[in-house]
Design a protein around this nucleic acid. Structure first.
Length: 288
DNA sequence: AAAGCGTGGGT
DNA sequence: TACCCAAGCTT
């Protein structure tokens, strides 16, 4: 046992949020849906959509039985709507190849559309209590500070970083699974990217970054996504117009959603290419 | 391996 | 007001 374990586990016991995808009553499917939705989207915005999703589609097969466009529509404004298609595709694989049960093995999870290293480890750990290194942005930041003594982790996961996380993983499955969610929660609530609440941190006395006097980040500039005028914004506008309509949308309506014709045409084509939109006649488009 | 992919709340 | 940034994945 590392000396970091007890303070973090105790803190989690006292401060963990009650979330619908946590706890004994949550199905593995509920956990999986939450993990897809939480990929780059904050908890507060996921909560209502997750609830509606689980009520409408209680199992993977229920979702798989519907057109992909229904998933895109129900995804609402969570952002990155390709995740809705991937969740639908993953549900289809689970329904057809896994007996409608979310797999528990990391390798089976990793093979699903939209599931990468983090999500596979998270589902195996949170839904099934398996022992896995769960490395998300929160965990990486906590370890960067507490262990490595720097404010932020590197852009990409390093070998050393993974070794630190592996070395800190408790030996038994149940404790490892609690540890994983506890470190994540600590990063989400206390060891935040900006304005960390070190006064409330159970690791304050053990934190290398704090011991070093909170040195400022001196690595390469972290990339900031531009937004205004990008294809992402244009695609978002076009897809919103389709979501907001019950049926096919005429080209003239999409023209109103984005003024620049060249960009609008390019983005519409890319949405079709991505299978987020389908042509519905010569001058109309719809959700698939 | 770096860029592309949405959205909205917080500061 | 402009950033910053949030449980990543894919190509």
């Amino acid at each position: 046992m590392s000396e970091l374990h007890e303070p973090v586990l105790q803190w989690y016991d006292d401060h963990a949020r009650e979330l619908p995808w946590r706890g004994a009553g949550a199905s593995a499917w509920s956990v999986m849906v939450s993990e897809f939705m939480l990929q780059q989207t904050p908890v507060a915005r996921v909560l209502p959509v997750h609830e509606a999703w689980l009520r409408r589609w209680p199992t993977p097969a229920d979702l798989a039985a519907e057109p992909t466009g229904e998933a895109v529509r129900a995804w609402g404004r969570l952002g990155y709507p390709r995740r809705a298609l991937r969740l639908h595709a993953a549900a289809t694989v689970i329904a057809e190849q896994h007996g409608n049960q979310v797999p528990s093995a990391y390798a089976d999870l990793l093979a699903l559309p939209g599931v990468g290293d983090y999500t596979a480890a998270a589902i195996a750990s949170f839904a099934y209590g398996r022992r896995h290194v769960v490395l998300d942005t929160n965990v990486r930041r906590v370890f960067a500070r507490a262990v490595q003594g720097v404010e932020f982790p590197s852009a990409a996961v390093t070998r050393a970083e993974r070794e630190v996380a592996t070395g800190l993983l408790p030996d038994d499955d149940a404790t490892a699974a609690t540890w994983a969610v506890a470190v994540m929660e600590l990063g989400a609530l206390v060891c935040t990217a900006s304005n960390p609440r070190c006064g409330d941190c159970p690791l304050a006395e053990l934190c290398a970054w704090r011991a070093a006097g909170h040195p400022a980040y001196d690595g390469p500039a972290r990339k900031v996504q531009t937004w205004a005028g990008t294809d992402r914004q244009c695609r978002g506008r076009l897809l919103a117009a389709l979501r907001d309509s019950d049926g096919p949308v005429h080209r003239s309506t999409l023209d109103l959603a984005w003024a620049d014709e060249t960009q609008r045409t390019r983005c519409l084509a890319s949405l079709v290419e991505d299978r987020l939109v389908v042509a519905a006649g010569p001058d109309a488009y719809a959700l698939p």
